[in-house]
Design a protein around this nucleic acid. Structure first.
Length: 476
RNA sequence: CGGGAGGUGGCGCAGCUUGGUAGCGCGCUUGCUUCGGGAGCAAGAGGCCGCGAGUUCGAAUCUCGUCCUCCCGACCA
């Protein structure tokens, strides 16, 4: 029944924040630990992350990247070498001060990001243009001592990947920065069914130590933006600070051009909010750890379990990620449970189906139930999966596009931000105007989208000549 | 970091004002009957009342401290 409502989850319209927390816990994605901001990634939540890892590893390796692992601690003295970087991250570092029984002379920063470690290492292994490019990636967790925390969206510790690359030329490094942004955009479109706006960060919003930062920005159903991934072009700043040099084709010593890029478990937050509903999580089929759940109905009746197991086997043999629940919970309980967990497709099989030679398929994302011939089950599921993915992506894209509002005045900016979503505005490029928008509306410049078609002459905030199209939004 | 709310079996909560043997619902275990939208009956198991001090003959209850969670702001992925 499509209109069944789960009453153990707060309804979105009643309290969106509480709904989010309920889903995180009811879908068994995470649990809280005894330390603020440090969450436990439960098996189901971690499995989603593993799907993301699998996709990205494939893409990273296909583009020549190699996985490595760096230490999780950085000597404070080393961290100090790049001054923008240290001033950006110092307020949120966790520092180890005791080793064994002794105070450490050089305290150890638990990595908030690993630029300095990669750069220091690169100084040792790069000496010629023949050593370039170096295309490294690492999967790890990082620590940032956050004041307010929310599961997946902002934690004191989060899981991520961080790519760090060194290139012979500026052009090659800039190309890498944009290439990785494209891969993140593909990840959203092809795996997560989450559309992003791509663009460049303003100077105020860019990464500490970067020359340029690009990002993918998603939009949540409460109208807030969510920065979902960033790529940075560093120029030669870190390389100079850490003495990374190579002998070029012309025989001269020069500094390589550097990039870094990352996405984190924050993506889980995006998936939860973009697709979820009042019955819980709704997972797009390609990222779902379990794509199909088989529910035998009246399973004590002879023939039901064997028939359900055959269904399971056919689906598993077809390469689908499938689960069968033979527990003695009632059918209704199982329906609710797997809806909370967002499993895209449910196959029900009871005496009635068996008698008629059919199975019942229920689609999580729209509540539809259909009956198909047993022998057509696998091909039907194989057809439904791309169809569901497409419908989910298009629904999210439609919402995103409907919430990008072109504004020409402060009044329109206010109205657009009230409505929720991105306010698209012409901007003079001065940080003073960014600060003013923040002050008036608690909204920040999310990015300057790649699509820079001017639609106005002046910046509505200061009245000076406008230079850039910028998207403002309230953000997580 | 400021303002508000909260922490009592696995989960959700009552009890606290007025100190005196720790309760309820769900879940869990066993058995039987059930199963197409969170089943029924019966018998059971399970609690450092977040943690630490203090007041008291006696503290879940009063006092102080501290940690954690949620919400709203400021700060940040």
């Amino acid at each position: 029944m499509a209109d069944f409502k789960n009453d153990s989850i707060t309804r979105q319209e009643d309290d969106f924040a509480q709904w989010y927390t309920d889903v995180c816990r009811k879908a068994e994605l995470m649990d809280y630990s005894s330390v603020k901001g440090f969450i436990i990634y439960r098996p189901y939540g971690y499995a989603i992350w593993e799907q993301i890892q699998e996709y990205l590893n494939k893409r990273f390796k296909a583009t020549g990247h190699e996985n490595v692992y760096m230490p999780m601690v950085i000597p404070e003295s080393l961290f100090q070498k790049e001054k923008d970087h240290i001033s950006g991250f110092a307020p949120e570092t966790l520092i180890a001060t005791i080793g064994g029984q002794n105070e450490l002379d050089d305290r150890l920063i638990i990595r908030p990001t690993s630029e300095v470690l990669f750069t220091e290492h690169y100084a040792k292994v790069i000496s010629s243009y023949r050593d370039l490019p170096k295309l490294y990636n690492q999967w790890c967790s990082v620590i940032r001592w956050e004041k307010t925390t929310r599961p997946f969206l902002r934690g004191s510790e989060f899981l991520w990947q961080e790519g760090h690359t060194m290139h012979e030329t500026e052009e090659e490094a800039r190309t890498e920065t944009l290439k990785m942004l494209e891969i993140y955009d593909d990840l959203g479109r092809d795996l997560l069914a989450v559309p992003f706006v791509k663009g460049r960060k303003t100077d105020k919003e860019k990464f500490a130590g970067a020359e340029e930062t690009y990002s993918i920005e998603a939009l949540m159903p409460d109208g807030k933006g969510l920065q979902s991934g960033t790529t940075h072009y560093f120029g030669t700043g870190f390389a100079k600070a850490f003495g990374v040099q190579f002998q070029g084709r012309d025989g001269k010593l020069t500094n390589p051009h550097q990039t870094s890029w990352g996405v984190s478990t924050r993506l889980l937050g995006a998936i939860i909010m973009v697709h979820g509903d009042d019955n819980g999580l709704v997972l797009p089929p390609y990222v779902a750890p379990i794509q199909v759940v088989v529910i035998p109905i009246a399973q004590q009746k002879p023939g039901v379990i064997p028939a359900a197991r055959e269904v399971y086997k056919d689906l598993a043999d077809a390469g689908l990620r499938v689960k069968i629940d033979e527990s003695d919970k009632t059918a209704g309980w199982k329906f609710s449970e797997y809806e909370m967990k967002g499993i895209p497709l449910r196959v029900e099989l009871g005496p009635r189906d068996i008698e008629n030679g059919v199975v019942t398929i229920a689609k999580r994302h729209n509540g539809e139930k259909i009956s198909v011939k047993r022998e057509e089950l696998v091909e039907t599921i194989n057809r439904l999966i791309p169809e569901i993915h497409k419908e989910m992506y298009e629904k999210a894209l439609k919402y995103l596009l409907e919430h990008v509002t072109e504004v020409h005045s402060v009044e329109e900016l206010n109205a657009a931000l009230e409505k929720g979503g991105y306010a698209k505005m012409m901007w003079c490029g001065e940080q003073a105007c960014e600060d003013k928008v923040k002050e008036m509306f608690q909204a920040t410049a999310r990015c300057m989208p790649f699509n820079q078609i001017a639609f106005d002459e002046t910046c509505p905030i200061c009245g000076k000549k406008a230079k850039k199209v910028v998207l403002f939004a309230k953000a997580y």
